[in-house]
Design a protein around this nucleic acid. Sequence first.
DNA 1: CCTACCGATCGGTAGG
DNA 2: CCTACCGATCGGTAGG
Lengths: 210, 210
Amino acid sequence: MTSQPAEPPPRRGRGRPGHDQAAVLRAAVELFNRKGYDATSMGDLAKELGLTKPAIYHHVTGKEQLLGQALDDALDELTAVVTEAFREQAGRSAYERLREVVRRSVEVLVAHQPSVTLLLRVRGNSEVELAALERRRWLDDRLAALVTDAVAEGALRDDVPATLVSRLLFGMVNSLVEWYRPDGAYDRAMVADAVTAIAFDGLARHETRV
Amino acid sequence: MTSQPAEPPPRRGRGRPGHDQAAVLRAAVELFNRKGYDATSMGDLAKELGLTKPAIYHHVTGKEQLLGQALDDALDELTAVVTEAFREQAGRSAYERLREVVRRSVEVLVAHQPSVTLLLRVRGNSEVELAALERRRWLDDRLAALVTDAVAEGALRDDVPATLVSRLLFGMVNSLVEWYRPDGAYDRAMVADAVTAIAFDGLARHETRV
DNA sequence: CCTACCGATCGGTAGG
DNA sequence: CCTACCGATCGGTAGG
């Protein structure tokens, strides 16, 4: 091994277009989602960016760092939604807070779809993935607690266990990442309305609603 | 390709424990789900079975064949559910057929959870995966058509586009594979009831139901 | 000659 | 940012 100067500052006005770290991350996340993390090689990423493989390592320290940054992005956004529901909405009923969490979660899913998609596919194959799973578990526990509170208030049906309700509700919300496309037929607000309506009122036509 | 005698009967009383093709497949699917297909090596599978890697090739022709068999299993089961809804239930309303499809889908998901989980994670990275995606798309189209019919009957709400309803409904159903465990707290019928109740009637408590 | 394997290694490619 | 490579490991197969 030869010693090597660490990270020269990015030159302007010379050399190639100048991809920055964010552009590499965006392209990486797009590929990770399209082909899967393991099936994506750093060579694939280089080709996508019009660089050589070694050139990527000028911008990022490695493949797993790219994954970690994407997972942190998704987790930070979702954590903000959940934290807010408990902190800033303390005066409202659990039912109202749950509706708000569902709506805001949908908005995060569509606004940060690529990184959230990666998060939902994490299997725990590395330290980075295990750390993400731990944060995700914390979120799931908070959401389940909110559902339990809403059932206890009498706002939600009590003929199904609250943990099961929570899993199915957020299973539906999370399924958005499988098909939602920002340039598709449905805009953000429309999807949020549809999810909230179907989740809380069901998809059957009712004669009377409360 | 060379012609080949199909499946010799398993010998008893001599040689090693005698893993058969089905046992290798079961172990492979379990590993594919736990670690991901690409992250699972044939060496991992060999270790799990207590064999050497070359020994696996006595039972199966390769890694991708294992994936293909699992995907076919899931697709065959789901295709049967959908086909039956159109063929054997022609006299019933679309709404009734849709409810039945949801219930039967839940049952297939929990009975064939490992292979269905693999199916839902396919990205199209190979011929085997592309073929599976094509069959899956056929299923999704049939299900969407059934939802459209149920809306046209007036049985389902018409304030949300039918394609969106279909995606959210089966997104919830499919999310089962993320957490359902056969040895867990919920049995098959309980989960099927919960999904159907929440999907069609919603999770809010209503004063009146139709 | 069969089966059920083993120790060793093939040609290629991964991340770095 | 490239050419030239590394240690390791991949899926799959050789002879015995």
